[in-house]
Design a protein around this nucleic acid. Sequence first.
DNA 1: AGATGGATTGACCGTTTGGTTAAGATGATG
DNA 2: CATCATCTTAACCAAACGGTCAATCCATCT
Lengths: 204, 204
Amino acid sequence: MTEQPTKLSTEEQILEAAQAVFLEKGLAGARMQEIADRAGINKALLHYYFRSKEKLSALIIERAISVILPRVMAVLDTDLELFDKIRLVVDTYLTFVSRNSFLPLFIVNEVNRNPHFFFRAVVEKERTHLDKFRRQVDEAVAQGRIHPISSAQLFMNVMSLVIFPFLGKPIIQAGLGLSEEDFKREMENRRTEVAEFVIRAIRA
Amino acid sequence: MTEQPTKLSTEEQILEAAQAVFLEKGLAGARMQEIADRAGINKALLHYYFRSKEKLSALIIERAISVILPRVMAVLDTDLELFDKIRLVVDTYLTFVSRNSFLPLFIVNEVNRNPHFFFRAVVEKERTHLDKFRRQVDEAVAQGRIHPISSAQLFMNVMSLVIFPFLGKPIIQAGLGLSEEDFKREMENRRTEVAEFVIRAIRA
DNA sequence: AGATGGATTGACCGTTTGGTTAAGATGATG
DNA sequence: CATCATCTTAACCAAACGGTCAATCCATCT
């Protein structure tokens, strides 16, 4: 029974602690001391590995984005038929974010606070995937298979329906009087309901 | 031509400056010095009017929420037929937020950071309005006028479609390659498109 | 003019914050 | 065992921060 919980390297311990604190407190609210404490190390060591708060936070932001963005983009890039693609992207995203429910708020926050960084570092290489989705939508409209809708609006709608509930969780919970379990159950329902909602909205 | 831009009282000047800084930098990122500077006053005077950062921020948060929440709730409380109600709430919200585009991010942030405050201070008195909307939806489902959908899911969907684009603006802009004017135009389109999207999705 | 009381200020204070430094562990290598 | 680079620490530092204070300003009233 030698306790050895897959001992993480100091660097990995720091990154996990940093991610936890940054997601919880936000960029400005996070303290280097707290990150060090949670990583079980000294504050000096923290600066030894990652020279400054800025560099550490930039790393965490990039890590957070690069973990979630490709997941969605990969689905949008498949050759699935449009409705199935919508079903899959909704399910993929909701499944993932349910296990990382602080991520959306953090990303949305920092991307708004520093759009340029996000724009250049991550999106420009991923835009091709979106082009494929856009053509697919335009084609379906042209063929009369779906109601006239711009790909931009449809993209926004799917993103909104999938991401927002995690950002607005306390508002929704309070507004509807949902307990933690209630909310979780409703989120589970969304895995199928959102896609069908969208499909009913656009099906010709 | 006596320039006199409706000279605000010192207190009002402070509140406006505080709101601007808090929305821009977030709660933790905002500095009392910057608020004082923007209000054109001394930092000591700032504490003379509002004793601490906490009390000032609590005021701004409450102000922000109480400005936007009743607007939506009032619409949900009207006797309009369901589809018209959806049209109106979408239009009302989008019109208002377009002119206060930093508000949603700020509110979502602080409500997540301190849900209890939000829950007790604001929502409990407003939940009655939502009950009316919920009954209306349940009734429409029972009568077969709309597709089976829980009022919770429908509420989340409308909220999502209306609010998220403002939170995810940089992501959407980058993803779709929209200029500032492009984005603004798409948001203008949403004023009518979102409601019709929702109605198509639920109409039996 | 003098007194009163709220509004306003510059100078100051204690604490917290991100960051540094110099001195030691530690462990692999010759 | 000596060497050397990598880790790790306690102690420290300057700057920034929220907040306070005594002193002034200034309009109003007597």
